[in-house]
Design a protein around this nucleic acid. Sequence first.
DNA 1: TTAAGTGCAAATTCTTTGCATCATA
DNA 2: TATGATGCAAAGAATTTGCACTTAA
Lengths: 143, 143
Amino acid sequence: MKNMSVLTEKVREQGLRLTRQRKVVYEELTKVDTHPRAEEVFQMVKRRLPQVSLGTVYRNLKTLKEMGLISEYKYARNYSRFDARIEAHHHFTCLKCDRIFDLLEPPDLNFEQILPKNSGFKVDYSRLEFYGECPGCSSTRSF
Amino acid sequence: MKNMSVLTEKVREQGLRLTRQRKVVYEELTKVDTHPRAEEVFQMVKRRLPQVSLGTVYRNLKTLKEMGLISEYKYARNYSRFDARIEAHHHFTCLKCDRIFDLLEPPDLNFEQILPKNSGFKVDYSRLEFYGECPGCSSTRSF
DNA sequence: TTAAGTGCAAATTCTTTGCATCATA
DNA sequence: TATGATGCAAAGAATTTGCACTTAA
């Protein structure tokens, strides 16, 4: 399994340990393209390590994400945010201060290149989300 | 307040009622561009209606969203989803079955049009998310 | 008048964490 | 063998819901 070498390296590089649990969480996640939630990862891991706990899965998902080996999909935090602006527009989410900015430039995306008409996907709406550092946070950074 | 007429219409059209709470939730949300979470909306509404309950705010946010008057930002549900694919790619989320599909066509977005270099926003990464109905769900629809 | 909506509190759901124990390096 | 990681269970955080009461239409 070639992907394991990158895990081994990353773990060593950060002075962490390559536990069976950590290895299996990563292995199972590389096997699927279903973007499972934590509970589903837990079930997959449990088939191979019946004693594993949900807390361990959460901790390892967090660690793997911090190592840059996996992605986590959610809005800045796990709660909903509401907006009375219903016209299509983009967002910029600041990873430092957690604020969301509206980007007023209207979407100009060539969707057909990404989703050909015959693909069978029917798009209701789309969102382009940027993540990074907002002007306020980059100007007040402390060194 | 011209936006109120659209609320009045929508409410009537659906056989619902225009309660003080519903009106104030919508009014307060139209006043801000900060994409508040439910708890923050609750605090804003509470200043005008001290007796309002958090549950009522949640119920009205849901109703307003169903009427198409406000947007809710979150991934399909309010929990994280994980992915071992870390290269940039797009997603299609099916609103029927809640599955997320990877779109393999690489991003081809003219970011500078949206976020000029001198805007002060530093982009770490971006995500283009499509929402709609996937091929499986549209072919098995029951009428 | 009547049924949609509210307030309250309990229940659910997802995630995090404290602590004693385990096991990797 | 030292300390990072685990298992367990309890705590936390966001959201939903049951129910008796209220109120808009």
